[in-house]
Computed example of a mutant assay.
Amino acid sequence: MKPIGLFLLFLLFSLKCFSQPDPSLFYPGRILEITKELQYQAIQEDSSKYHALLWERAEMQVSLLVQSNVSTKRTDSTATKQLINDLNYLIDRDIKIGEGNFQTTKLDFLLNRGIFYSQSTNYQNALSDYLQIIEMDSSGRFREVALYRISITYFAIGNIDLALTYVDQILDENTSEKKFDNLFYACESGSSLINWKISILEKSGRKKELIQLYRKLIRQNRKIGWHDNAKCFSEGLKSLKEQ
């Protein structure tokens, strides 16, 4: 099973006419099916099938928590206890599911447990899991999502400086590798890393820093010929100055 991408957990769209159904609508039913299968069918504990079912259920449960944006403190305690027990089981035993480049490993489980802790407002445990991912991830495949989650967590705690530090780290690394799409693509969509930094500055009332950022973005986008983005950021700057 492929790991959850950077924005998969955070950009869940409303259903529209003629659109494809949101797959998360089927998660509750599938979670019940898995629970019954684990309880009533002859599945050998610690088998590959057992591991795969635990992970499938845990991943869907975490996705639903994020989509609903509800703290686990206000949800069914039995379900949340079962979820954290499943993730602890997979992490403590260093379980591996599948093979090849997209093998599911401890890094996937740590990411989901960190998100669970964030939903529980257990921010220190969440940070510990994200930092462990960065330390263990020799391929760098999870680095960006872990740094992003750290930035989100520090923002939730109220540490704006560290929230900015970690998003800036992602942006600096992307710039050095010329991954400009992640920096400037789709200004209006609100889904880029730059827009996350803008959101931090807006919500923390750092108007002077935000003005400087807008001016920098306008220059950079004009330089590389992305005039729609430059116009979009110019409008943002104009609106900010009028406030």
Results as ranks from 00 to 15, higher is better:
S192I: 08
S192G: 15
S192N: 15
S192A: 10
S192H: 09
S192V: 10
S192R: 02
S192Q: 05
S192K: 05
L193H: 12
L193T: 08
L193V: 10
L193K: 10
L193G: 11
L193S: 08
I194H: 08
I194S: 15
I194W: 01
N195Y: 09
N195D: 14
N195F: 09
N195S: 14
W196T: 11
W196K: 13
K197T: 13
K197Y: 06
K197F: 04
K197G: 13
I198G: 10
I198Y: 03
S199G: 08
S199V: 00
S199D: 10
S199A: 11
I200L: 14
I200R: 02
L201E: 07
L201G: 12
L201T: 10
L201H: 07
E202A: 08
E202P: 09
E202H: 11
E202G: 04
E202I: 12
E202W: 03
K203W: 05
K203Y: 04
K203Q: 15
K203M: 09
K203C: 07
S204W: 01
S204F: 07
S204P: 13
G205E: 01
G205Y: 01
G205P: 03
G205W: 00
G205D: 00
R206Y: 07
R206N: 15
R206W: 02
K207R: 09
K207W: 02
K207V: 12
K207Y: 01
K207H: 07
K208A: 15
K208G: 06
K208V: 15
K208T: 15
K208C: 04
K208M: 08
E209G: 08
L210D: 02
L210N: 03
L210S: 07
L210H: 03
L210V: 11
I211W: 00
I211F: 00
I211Y: 01
I211E: 02
I211A: 07
Q212V: 13
Q212Y: 04
Q212R: 10
Q212K: 10
L213S: 08
L213C: 04
L213M: 09
L213N: 05
Y214H: 08
Y214M: 05
R215F: 00
R215M: 08
K216W: 00
K216F: 09
K216G: 06
L217H: 06
L217E: 01
L217Y: 02
L217V: 10
L217K: 03
L217N: 07
I218N: 06
I218V: 14
I218E: 00
I218M: 03
I218T: 07
I218K: 07
I218R: 03
I218W: 03
R219E: 11
Q220R: 10
Q220G: 00
Q220N: 13
Q220Y: 06
Q220F: 07
Q220E: 14
Q220P: 00
N221S: 06
N221A: 04
N221K: 01
N221E: 02
N221Q: 00
